[in-house]
């Protein structure tokens, strides 16, 4: 642990702010992630978790502050990678975001074919191996996303995210839309994949059971800032009333969220 802290962080976020119109979603957020960390950011719906993730992916441009991944600004990283054919980041989307027009193996090997120009035959073999590692049989490879169940889509999405063997894995709501058993299985799969890759993982979720299973470290996002950050095992004793209310799912407490449906 001490050795890790001496290395420069894998991801460094400084004073990140992002507003949409008058609504300030992120307000000076700071975060550091070291190689091999598995951080889960928890927070209510609409607390800005997705915005944070999109800023890190370079899909949204922050109003202020900066995000560095291995010392490179995040919004430039994805373009530079594209030019260099490097694969540093993998992303598992909430509903998998598989390409409808491509079959499963083409989906899984998409990043490989685009970044490294791998041949179709080789890509298919790699895709089938990746599918096996997420517990899917080879005959799934020829199916189209529309023919898959929610759990299978998620597995294919995970296979696609790890196909390029990224150093950093971003995961958006791993259990969204899945039954508890399937959600548990996906969580275990994610943990296994992250360990196998030796990747740094950042997950956002509001599912506490899932967050506990995946994370080594947890942080809570509230009103555009991280109000608590620490090892997962200490979250029960956080001493923070907001965190307490959230992890126990109590309707009353300091968080007077959007119960009335007002945004």
């Amino acid at each position: 642990m001490t050795q890790k802290q001496n290395l420069p962080p894998k991801i460094r976020v400084r004073g990140l702010s992002k507003s949409f119109g008058r609504k300030a979603v992120l307000q000076g957020l700071d975060l550091e992630l070291h190689q091999g960390d598995s951080l889960v950011i928890i927070g209510g719906s609409g607390s800005g978790k997705s915005v944070l993730l999109k800023c890190m992916l370079g899909l949204l441009h922050p109003d202020a502050g900066n995000i560095e991944i291995d010392g490179t600004p995040a919004d430039r990283l994805i373009h530079r990678e594209r030019e260099e054919g490097r694969a540093k980041i993998g992303m598992l989307f909430q509903n998998a975001a598989l390409f409808d027009s491509l079959n499963v193996w083409r989906n899984v090997s998409f990043g490989l074919m685009q970044s490294k120009g791998t041949s179709a035959r080789e890509s298919r073999e790699i895709a089938i191996a990746k599918l096996a590692s997420v517990g899917l049989a080879a005959d799934v490879a020829e199916l189209y996303p529309a023919e898959l169940s929610g759990g299978m889509r998620k597995r294919v999405g995970l296979a696609r995210a790890i196909a390029t063997e990224p150093e950093i894995l971003f995961i958006d709501e791993p259990t969204a839309g899945l039954d508890p058993i399937m959600g548990h299985a996906i969580d275990e799969l994610i943990v296994a994949c992250v360990e196998k890759l030796g990747a740094t993982a950042l997950t956002i979720t509001h599912d506490m059971a899932s967050a506990r299973r995946i994370s080594k470290r947890m942080a809570m996002l509230y009103e555009g800032k991280l109000i608590w950050d620490g090892p997962t095992r200490t979250i029960e004793r956080s001493g923070n009333p907001y965190v307490d209310q959230f992890i126990n799912g109590r309707p009353d407490g300091p968080i007077q969220g959007n119960l009335a449906g007002v945004d």
Binding site: L57, R82, G85, N95, L98, D100, F110, Q114, R160
Partner: peptide
């Protein structure tokens, strides 16, 4: 439009494709 709202366009970007 469907690709946009189902995050497939974001997925393209994360998979090194413009």
């Amino acid at each position: 439009g469907t690709m946009r709202v189902t995050e497939q366009i974001d997925a393209l970007t994360t998979l090194y494709t413009d």
